[in-house]
Design a protein around this nucleic acid. Structure first.
Lengths: 331, 331
DNA sequence: CTGTTAGCGCCTTCAC
DNA sequence: GTGAAGGCGCTAACAG
């Protein structure tokens, strides 16, 4: 009997209407991913991970762009929340207005990706930005650099992306007894290649040029590489460059780019797990998860001196396999 | 009265349930965009254009990845067609099995992006690939190159992306009386940076190195730049390089990349227009639309000789403003 | 102009 | 085991 029905289904080419099903069960199997810009390689790669993992769990992903505009973020969240199209939202925000988030919590499951927010009202998953920044700068120090610049973000306390990275940068300098020179930090309005070029122009306008630049995104770093080239400086001979995000393209630049690599796939996995739990009705208090990161060493920071190289590799390899939180890998 | 209701809506925070609305009216306002990989910069930029234009027309875009796998393409199209989630599909396919498309036409409005299919059963919009390739190679010839290689695609007749580009490449050579050397074409399994490196390795293994390389994607070109660098060849001094897609990153490479630039925004606009017409019930026969392209000249092809530079610029500027189909722009 | 109703396609419940 | 019914929230059609 069951078979007879099945046969009829096949013959008539029956497809269940997901709309009606969704209406009936109050669940669509669709989640929304909100990113500033899908054209930014980091967000593209993140989206890819999320789409893959979600489809493995039976969810479909709708991607929307916020342009990093908080108003648009709110608007899109409202639409998502009200319309019941979607079961939940993954929000990769740049700067988020705190107050409004609370209102959304009641409406719809939301998990924040990447940046941390102060009020502990929403689930969040990201890397330890401060620690990652410290790792990167400490590596530059170990490789013999002393005038280490940093570029990216506005450096304001409210800037939840750049602030911890600046703190980590300062911590590393302090740890090595290197005085902090405010001229060596260049703020940028965004994390694009163009801004990376501008920031380098600014840094080179001062009397003493930096011998290393820690960029808060790979895009900034690519712009920096380009502008250093324009200025006739050689990387890594004259200046070391480190990026952040470990975007795929960074393996192919000339020189290839040393970069802080967040574990994107674990980020996606954790975020989806938390979101799906919420969708399934979990009411546990908001959680704050950390995923690992690694410093991927490539050409833009030059050869490491022999001792520190092996030491570093061995030391951190053991460490990272133990904690799975961070490490240094030479590629 | 109308106002009293409105007031009540506001007070109670009423949000229409789009699911029920969709069920009732048989229309969701959602379209699906199928791309091979969202991490490929070209598809990212295309997705961005489409999301923007769609939202301006009141549509939301769901992005799904096919991995360029025809089976997955079909599966996703089937899901889309059956489930009635979506009003229509934009499909950016690499190689599509012809037969199956016909079946889909009846199910759901579909517009093909980029690659052309033989059977005229579905709407299609793309650039004139053959003409674009000819433009690029003619430019290389005008700038004095004679051993011009091409890389990308499998070169099979069924490969609807690479075939017209190869034809255009050959046409340009023939037009200039340059004999076609089969060793100067390197096939690649995909359009990635890694494949670009491999292809260059292959080209350099032959006795006489090329003095120019025309790559069928910017990603291939970035890999080519990198591998030429590894081999100690200078670009553009020893070898000119031209890419295809004019991805944003190509402005920042060292050297910056000359590239064929499809009019992505018009591509998105045209595709959406056609799709929405279909969604609105239009039954006109399948259309085949062309959008413009431009050759953006940057550092990777060196300085153009003075006469041909101005001549070219003037000539093609006029031409392109007239036909809006192609042109050469020096950046 | 306002009020009522039927039904989009599904799934869950309850009855047989 | 099979069958029937109600209702998810909406809107189009119709009645008052």
């Amino acid at each position: 009997m069951r078979e007879k029905v099945q046969q009829a289904l096949d013959e008539l080419g029956y497809r269940p209407n997901m709309l009606a099903r969704g209406l009936r069960q109050g669940r669509t199997g669709i989640i929304t991913l909100l990113v500033p810009q899908i054209t930014v390689p980091y967000f593209g790669e993140l989206a890819h991970e999320i789409v893959e993992q979600a489809s493995a769990r039976g969810f479909t992903v709708m991607i929307d762009e916020t342009d990093g505009d908080p108003e648009r973020e709110i608007a899109l969240l409202k639409v998502a929340g009200g319309s019941s199209w979607v079961d939940g939202v993954l929000l990769s925000s740049l700067g988020l207005e705190e107050g409004v988030l609370g209102a959304l919590k009641s409406t719809l499951p939301v998990v924040l990706l990447g940046e941390h927010t102060a009020d502990e009202v929403l689930d969040h998953v990201g890397i330890d930005n401060e620690r990652a920044a410290t790792d990167a700068v400490e590596f530059l120090i170990r490789s013999g650099r002393t005038r280490i610049a940093a570029i990216g973000g506005m450096g304001e306390a409210s800037d939840r992306t750049s602030r911890p990275r600046i703190d980590g940068y300062h911590a590393a300098l302090r740890g090595a007894g290197i005085p902090i020179d405010p001229q060596l930090y260049a703020a940028t309005p965004d994390y694009t290649r163009g801004s990376g070029m501008d920031a380098v122009t600014q840094l080179l306008s001062f009397a003493e040029a930096p011998d290393a630049i820690f960029c808060f995104s790979d895009d900034l770093a690519l712009g920096a590489l380009r502008q250093l080239h324009n200025a006739g400086l050689r990387v890594p001979d004259d200046v070391s460059v480190v990026g952040f995000d470990d975007v795929d393209g960074s393996r192919f630049t000339i020189p290839s780019l040393t970069s802080v690599s967040p574990d994107k796939s674990e980020l996606a996995r954790t975020a989806l797990e938390m979101l799906i739990e919420r969708i399934d009705g979990s009411m546990v208090p908001a959680r704050d998860m950390r995923v690992g990161h690694t410093l991927i060493v490539r050409e833009s920071t030059g050869e490491i001196t022999v001792e520190s190289a092996s030491e570093t590799a061995a030391e951190t390899a053991a460490e990272s396999s133990a904690s799975a939180i961070h490490g240094v890998v030479t590629q």
